[in-house]
């Protein structure tokens, strides 16, 4: 029973840890499917986290916080669009720039406004997104096996967790069952064809980037308003890059993205859980190896040793109309 409880705990923290990855990964999916590389997921999550926590603590409302997180994150996504769509700049350079501006400005504004060394004030419970307890969760806790699964894994998460997992089928539906999704995929593969059909390539890509901004905003809000009771500097800690890795791992498909993020979240949860405990057969695994595993797996995947990851064809190439 101890082992079972341990497994439930690891899976529970897997869900919690994979939510920001999942949201950021789906965010990246929108922009990359539309042909815009987005290294700046990290930065957009970070400004989302800061804007969310800062405005939640000023206006005492979690929902205003979430709204501001989305707004600021979308604004950064539009800067990326302005540079890479309107001015046909290098998308990777622009993404790197956004990460730096985000990293610097969140700490500096946080310090100037709240004077807590770059942190925002700790959020009260009504300024955060609390856990939603599903009906009967407490009553069923005693039931063996199914009880803990229902009450720990399914119930008891914040609304943003459910939003993240619902975003997966929703993204699938948008991508493969709507006109917008079809055109978005087309613009990522062959923008000239879309242009010939009389559809604005730029406007489509801007809309895809707005979707990206919304999702990274939610991801940031989750970090600072659910996982943590406030903003801490550099709190994304490379999650944007892991999300990017997960996106490649998932071969730019929404359902695969969920599994990739759950896998990376699971590795993270496991490395926390196993810190210092020796494993049977293998012996003691260095924590650093566990932490590096998502990156190593991505490199191996990229090298084509686990299937081939083929990015959208027009990714990274600014669209220039023929003249």
């Amino acid at each position: 029973m101890d082992l079972f409880n341990a497994i439930i705990q690891v899976l529970d923290s897997t869900i919690r840890l994979s939510v920001p990855l999942l949201l950021a990964c789906l965010a990246g999916l929108y922009s990359e499917r539309a042909g815009i590389f987005d290294i700046g997921l990290e930065g957009k999550m970070l400004v989302g986290a800061f804007a969310g926590a800062a405005s939640a603590s000023v206006f005492h409302s979690a929902y205003i916080g979430l709204g501001m997180a989305i707004l600021i994150s979308v604004a950064f996504a539009l800067v990326h669009g302005f540079a890479s769509i309107t001015h046909r700049g290098n998308q990777i350079v622009s993404g790197v720039a956004i990460n730096f501006i985000a990293a610097g400005s969140t700490i500096m504004l946080g310090q100037a406004w709240f004077q807590q060394g770059g942190r925002t004030p700790a959020l009260a419970s009504d300024e955060r997104f609390g856990a939603i307890v599903w009906p009967g969760a407490d009553a069923l806790r005693g039931v063996p096996i199914l009880g803990p699964i229902y009450s720990e894994l399914v119930s008891g998460h914040s609304v943003l967790v459910y939003v993240a997992f619902l975003a997966v089928p929703f993204t699938w539906w948008v991508l493969f069952r709507t006109r917008f999704g079809l055109r978005m995929r087309a613009v990522g593969e062959n923008p000239a064809a879309v242009d010939t059909a009389g559809i604005s390539v730029a406007w489509l890509r801007y809309r895809a980037l707005i979707c990206t901004g919304v999702l990274t905003g939610i991801a940031g809000a989750y970090l600072s308003m659910v996982q943590n009771g406030g903003f801490v500097k550099d709190m994304t800690a490379g999650k944007g890059y892991i999300a990017l890795a997960a996106l490649i791992f998932a071969k730019w498909k929404p359902v695969n993205a969920m599994f990739a993020c759950l896998l990376f979240g699971f590795l993270d949860a496991l490395s926390i859980r196993l810190q210092g405990t020796p494993l049977p057969l293998i012996g003691k695994v260095p924590v650093q190896l566990m932490q590096a595993l998502p990156y190593i797996l991505t490199v191996i995947l990229l090298a084509g040793f686990i299937g081939k990851a083929i990015p959208p064809r027009a990714g990274g190439v600014p669209y220039v109309k023929e003249r």
Binding site: A83, G89, Q91, V93, S94, I98, N99, F100, S105
Partner: peptide, 13 residues
């Protein structure tokens, strides 16, 4: 921040 702005304006834009 300055670093980011330089990358943005001298690089991407």
């Amino acid at each position: 921040i300055i670093q980011g702005l330089v990358i943005l304006f001298a690089g991407a834009l």
